[in-house]
């Protein structure tokens, strides 16, 4: 799951996969704006077959949070 998420974030934000880590967030990544946030959410929903609630959309603001919320939604343990 982590690799998938990092691959998606790399594609959405146009940054190397290796640079996506525990510090990656909308505050540290300049490319993380409203539009790319929407693209990220859409890509995650499509890849994992989930639909995020409004509150989850507003919380998906960092790589760790994405990982946490997706793990809970899919019942997949984080690796």
């Amino acid at each position: 799951m982590e690799d998938k998420i990092r691959r998606i974030m790399s594609a959405v934000f146009g940054v190397p996969m290796e640079s996506i880590d525990g510090l990656t967030s909308h505050q540290t990544l300049e490319q993380w704006d409203s539009l790319s946030h929407m693209k990220l959410v859409t890509a995650l929903e499509e890849e994992f077959g989930v639909v995020f609630s409004d509150s989850e959309i507003l919380e998906l603001l960092s790589y760790p949070l994405v990982l946490l919320i997706l793990s809970e939604k899919t019942g997949t343990p984080r690796r």
Partner: peptide, 8 residues
């Protein structure tokens, strides 16, 4: 406005 709210 928080990121994502417009799209919501």
């Amino acid at each position: 406005a928080p990121i994502g709210v417009g799209w919501i």
